[in-house]
Computed example of a mutant assay.
Amino acid sequence: MTALDVALAYHQAWTGHDFEAAMQYVADGIFCQAPSGPIEGAEAFRGFMEPFSKILLESELLAAYGDESTALLMYGTRTVPVADAPAAELITVADGRITQLRIIFDRQPFTEARAADAS
């Protein structure tokens, strides 16, 4: 499988609400760079990503590019608290598993939604 194949399978699994299947594509030693800071290891990554997958209502893949070791996905999401939350992921794959993931998204709409719920 190419990096793009792995990235798409991972993306389809977590956006399809099958997080266990998604984690099969994640290396134990994954390093994730997220807007909230670095995340190291599969369990820490699960703690970061699984809660988001649970509030996801729908996702639309906008673009997907890759080669043997790197993939780039851009997608839009609609979540329980935020109607439009676009994101991009730069994914590095080795031996069929995601070893690095850099995710880019705007945290501000989620911060505002939490603040509104607290009011």
Rank of each mutant, 00 (worst) to 15 (best):
Glu40Met: 15
Ala115Leu: 15
Ala63Asp: 13
Leu101Asp: 08
Ile55Glu: 08
Ser59Glu: 09
Arg107Leu: 10
Ala42Tyr: 00
Lys54His: 13
Gly66Asn: 09
Ala113His: 05
Glu60Thr: 13
Val93Met: 09
Ile98Cys: 03
Thr2His: 02
Ala113Lys: 12
Glu60Arg: 13
Trp14Gln: 01
Ile103Thr: 05
Arg114Trp: 11
Ala9Val: 01
Met1Gly: 15
Thr79Tyr: 08
Leu57Tyr: 06
Pro38Met: 14
Pro86His: 07
Ala85Trp: 00
Glu50Arg: 12
Pro109Val: 04
Gly41Val: 07
Phe48Asp: 04
Pro35Gln: 10
Phe45Met: 03
Ala118Arg: 08
Glu112Leu: 15
Asp106His: 01
Ile30Ala: 02
Phe19Gln: 13
Ala44Pro: 04
Lys54Phe: 09
Ser53Lys: 07
Gly29His: 08
Thr15Glu: 00
Phe110Met: 12
Glu50Ser: 09
Tyr75Gln: 09
Met49Phe: 03
Tyr65Asn: 03
Ile30Arg: 00
Leu56Lys: 04
Ala27Glu: 05
Gly76Asp: 15
Ala85Arg: 02
Ser119Lys: 14
Pro109Asp: 06
Asp67Trp: 03
Ala71Asp: 10
Arg97Asp: 02
Arg46Gln: 06
Ala44Phe: 07
Asp84Phe: 15
Thr111Met: 13
Glu68Arg: 10
Ala44Met: 15
Asp5Trp: 01
Asp106Arg: 03
Pro35Val: 07
Ala85Glu: 01
Phe48Pro: 03
Glu40Thr: 15
Leu61Ala: 11
Thr70Tyr: 02
Gly96Pro: 01
His17Tyr: 08
Arg114Asp: 10
Glu89Ile: 03
Gly66Ser: 05
Glu58Ala: 05
Phe19Ile: 12
Ala83Gln: 14
Phe48Leu: 11
Met74Ala: 02
Ser119Glu: 14
Thr70Gln: 00
Thr92Ser: 03
Ala3Val: 04
Asp106Tyr: 07
Gln24Phe: 05
Ala34Trp: 07
Ala27Tyr: 03
Ala116Lys: 13
Gly96Val: 02
Arg46Pro: 04
Tyr10Phe: 12
Gly37Leu: 12
Ala3Leu: 06
Ile98Arg: 02
Tyr65Gln: 12
Asp18His: 09
Ala34Val: 13
Leu72Trp: 05
Ala116His: 07
Gln12Gly: 11
Gly37Ile: 14
Met49Ala: 06
Gly96Ile: 03
Ile104Phe: 15
Pro86Phe: 01
Thr2Gln: 00
Thr77Met: 08
Val93Thr: 14
Ile91Arg: 00
Phe45Trp: 11
Leu61Asp: 05
Glu43Arg: 10
Glu58Pro: 02
Val93Ala: 10
Ala64Trp: 07
Tyr10Lys: 03
Leu90Trp: 10
Thr2Asp: 04
Ala27Val: 11
Gly37Ala: 13
Tyr10Gly: 03
Leu4Glu: 03
Phe48Ala: 11
Glu68Val: 04
Arg97Trp: 05
Ile55Met: 14
Leu101Pro: 00
Thr92Leu: 04
Ile39Tyr: 00
Gly76Glu: 12
Glu40Gly: 08
Ala118Ser: 09
Arg107Trp: 05
Val26Pro: 01
Cys32Leu: 14
